[in-house]
Design a protein around this nucleic acid. Sequence first.
RNA 1: GUGGGCGUAGCUCAGUUGGCAGAGCACCGGACUGUGGCUCCGGCGGUCGGGGGUUCAAAUCCCCUCGCCCACCCCA
Length: 418
Amino acid sequence: MIQRPRGTRDILPPDTRLWNRVEAVAREVFSAWGAEEIRTPVFEHTELFVRSVGETTDIVHKEMYTFLDRKERSLTLRPEGTAGVARAWIENRMQDRSLPLRLYYIGPMFRYERMQRGRYRQFAQIGLEIIGAETPLADAELLAALHEFLVRLGFDDVEIHLNNLGDPDDRQRYQEAIRQVMEVHRAELCGDCQRRLDENPLRLLDCKVPRCQELSAGAPAMDAVASPASREHVAGVEALLARLGVPYRRNPRLVRGLDYYLRTAFEVVSPKLGAGTALGGGGRYDRLIADLGGPAVPGVGFAIGEDRLIDVLPEAFRLETLARPRLYLVPLGDAAQAWALELARDWVRGGVPVELEVTGRSARAAFKRADRDHFPVVVIVGDDELAQGTVTVKRLADGSQTRLTPDRVPGWWLEHVR
RNA sequence: GUGGGCGUAGCUCAGUUGGCAGAGCACCGGACUGUGGCUCCGGCGGUCGGGGGUUCAAAUCCCCUCGCCCACCCCA
């Protein structure tokens, strides 16, 4: 049998309802904050990601789905969303529109990784970008929109971790500073950290090995080395978040996996996901668009992992979404079938979700199924009903049963079920 | 990419020193010819993940392979 490729998955009903509703809430919230949807290709020229995400990052280094097309062009399935948005922004001369522009996207991303819980080779992200504003106010608005989205889904236990990554020049100096301080302890560091010391000293701060954490605790915080301008910027963001009551935590060890972030960087974490597994993240990328050959336009954005979001969705939202009452319409006998179909159409038109029993199963079997599938109401139409022009309506919860004329059914449904 | 665990019915699993592939649940039907949840009875359902090897005989032993899970790395 042919199986799905490793790292992919089938999302089946009724879970698709969760996906649809989460996406509907995202569209609602983000568009209420003035954002418009953007849809960019699922694959791009490889060069785009190499230049934006960063050559030394793991994503580019070992996680990209890269292939040659029939004309030998190197293409890559997008591993994240911001690069494509930035490219589209430049290519479509969106700077000619009034700035800033708020853009959101929803769609699949691809990273070649060994899968485990919350990590897939194809996964979906929901992202929001504010392009064309460099103020702390823009960052705070972005985080406010993110927070509102999570609140609307019923989350009350997610945390926003925030850090200042400094300006581009700071990063060089900071890496050097870490390297200097930590080089002395090289022998005591774990193997991974010894490698990080050479390749990407920032990542040292992120190590979970206790001894490494002790040692790196002595390293200076980024914020201490960062430019005054960047410190002021992030402090401004914090003040605004505090004013709004958006819960956040300063985390000086926060490092992100993409090179284009500067100044504000953040992650959304859930206690349900375990350390090191973020629900989402983002930050400011004032140089990205210029680096890709566009105008010097600043930006800030985030992306959240939809798969992970749905994995830890609050129970109330989950139950509310999954419970979708339908009226179960059962024709008994050949004579009633055409009538039942007609009634189903009329009631659906009247706003009642109907499931018509089309298999011809017996009344007994139909009730068994109704019970198992939690239909709140069964409507029977058979020879008796046909003769009298009324239908039998039974509520499963208490077993009560009445006869109604068909035109009264939608009203009855609204009154008793919805 | 590294390390560990696991693949037997739709699901959860049992299967003795190698000897006829099983149970529970679920599904379909009947008892109850148009009324659910309980009970009883019957039925459907299997390349034992796949391939090769050893053997009179393999779910069981050996080799290879595919898939899944967990941890690491890293991230959504």
